[in-house]
Amino acid sequence: MKGLKVIVLAKQVPDTRNVGKDAMKADGTVNRAVLPAIFNPEDLNALEQALRIKDQVPGTTVTILTMGPGRAAEIIREGLYRGADDGILLTDRAFAGSDTLATSYALAQTIKKIGEYDIIIAGRQAIDGDTAQVGPQVAQKLNIPQVTYAEEVTIEGEKVKIVRRLENGVETVVAKSPLAITVTSSAPECRSRNAKLLMKYKHARTVSELQNETQDYTHLYNDRPYLTIQEYTVNDIEVDNEQLGLSGSPTKVKKIENVVLQAKDAKKLSTSDEDISELMKELVESHVIG
């Protein structure tokens, strides 16, 4: 079997699972600065499936593609440490304010620029927006089939077999590449960093990151091309500017409200026998229970 070209779509996201009180600013907007930026959890599940294909089919390469600010190169390095072969950071102010349609357009145009691919693997959803739209939308824009909520992907000759997790059971489907797959959180966790790969890619940098280094490592990057993380801007891909960023986003945020609770006049009770007995009596008498 010939090796496959797999592209993993991964996003760096603020860790919304551990939002403390200081994460919300007084005006009700989110203070991203205090939230740690992490590899979107389901994108790690996606990466694991890609690495399993690589284990299964020799000669397979895994490329991580991420769109985001310069610091998103961190998750490309994280992917390299775990077994990915290379990564592309798509970064440009022109992408700012993108909704899922504009994001998927930019990602799809980048994939077209990469050219050859067999399987695109995305996470089911990103924890900052919780939309689960970008995967299917990239698939639509590339005009390839999609299989969502994958738990297990195996290559069987010319075909790809996928076990899907639905809300009320599982379903197994077969499809041919090229194909887009989204992976769900119940799929196996991603393998940890590999010590050798960590040594190998420790100095992997994008060109912009290199410019900010205090020392001159030019020789290192000339000798070891794999240490340069590719960085694309809007000029490196063919795009219609109308479809990018804010102007390419049909959805607009009209209003953001902080979640505030208006306290009700609750009856306060202790755990004493009297209080609980009284409560149960009241509930029975008012026919709430019984």
């Binding site: 603020p14 919304t16 699972r17 939002v19 994460a23 919300m24 009700g28 907007t29 989110v30 924890i127 900052d128 927006g129 919780d130 959805t251 607009k252 945020v253 009209k254 209003k255 953001i256 409200e257 902080n258 979640v259």
Partner: peptide, 11 residues
């Protein structure tokens, strides 16, 4: 949105 910390109105 945002892990449930805000309520967004989208149009």
């Amino acid at each position: 949105a945002f892990g449930g910390n805000i309520i967004a109105t989208i149009i």
